[in-house]
Design a protein around this nucleic acid. Structure first.
Lengths: 153, 153
DNA sequence: ACGCCTTTGACCTTTCCTGACCTTTCGAGC
DNA sequence: GCTCGAAAGGTCAGGAAAGGTCAAAGGCGT
């Protein structure tokens, strides 16, 4: 692991660990200077290492006083949940399979009945107007989003 | 948060919090003097930070006795959150407007920074693979679903 | 040799701040 | 009432200071 991107990555992660609130804010130009590289190298590190999939969100602002802010999500999609949900739901899902997944989560005590009803209602309301051929994928997105929100901590 | 516009913004928000009725009235020239900047800087702050999307209305009057009045709109007094959110988001929404809305919810203390980051992450992840022409509607669905879940009860 | 990941640099977009110039409102004097 | 001037606030374009994009070149493992 001897390349620049890796060093920058671990530097940022070290900062994040020390930071309160799992959040750091810095300047692209400064960071690039610190590592004697071009600024766009920072973007490379951010887009390859600090993605939502890995549990990070990056917010930036341009212009005078611009900054880059990296937030570590309290829910780390490590192994279990995120990939399990991804695997279970996939790119599209039928209403039936959505229902049975929700039921299963309730059975396992991860959701209560109110949660389940709420999610079902949202799924139905948001998909009913759609052209049938899109329903499956939109339903999958919605379900993943809501289940992750509910099982997060 | 190191630039002038940010300082002026947070000064005004502080005033708004202390104010009864979520409303303040002041003079552009005075404010500009307070921050040692040109008056038009105040307009810049108003048009970029105190927009309807972020939950503010600005009224002004020119001439002698002129003033600038900033009113903060609140989500709270409304009973039906669902229809308010529906109205606010609609059938499709840009990433910018989604961010504004999330910022507004955080501003009102209905969401914390972590929630906001999480929602952004999901929106980004679920939206990026899509054909650009569907992103707006899917983003709207996801945002409504997650916001309702978070603000429920 | 091939493919994937990294690194770089040229060029682009966004945000901030200022200053010159414009419009609206009020009130004093006619 | 009219006119005019002073006292507000409004607009707009430009320059500077961030960060973003993208494609081409460079490295490294198999």
């Amino acid at each position: 692991m001897g390349n620049l991107a890796d060093y920058i990555e671990s530097y940022l992660k070290r900062l994040l660990e020390q930071a309160e609130q799992g959040m750091i804010e810095l300047q692209r130009r400064e960071l690039a200077e610190m590592f004697s590289c071009v600024p766009s190298q920072i973007n490379y590190v951010l887009t390859t290492r600090f993605t939502p999939d890995r549990g990070y969100v990056v917010e930036t602002r341009r212009g005078g006083g611009g900054y880059i802010r990296i937030v570590r999500l309290s829910f780390r999609p490590s192994q279990n949940l995120a990939s399990l949900i991804e695997a279970e739901i996939g790119d599209e899902i039928t209403e039936r399979r959505a229902d049975s997944l929700l039921l299963r989560l309730e059975d396992e005590g991860l959701l209560d009945e109110g949660d389940r009803a709420f999610v079902r209602a949202v799924l139905e309301r948001e998909t009913e107007r759609l052209h049938p051929s899109y329903r499956g994928t939109v339903r999958a997105s919605l379900l993943k989003a809501m289940v992750m929100l509910l099982l997060r901590e």
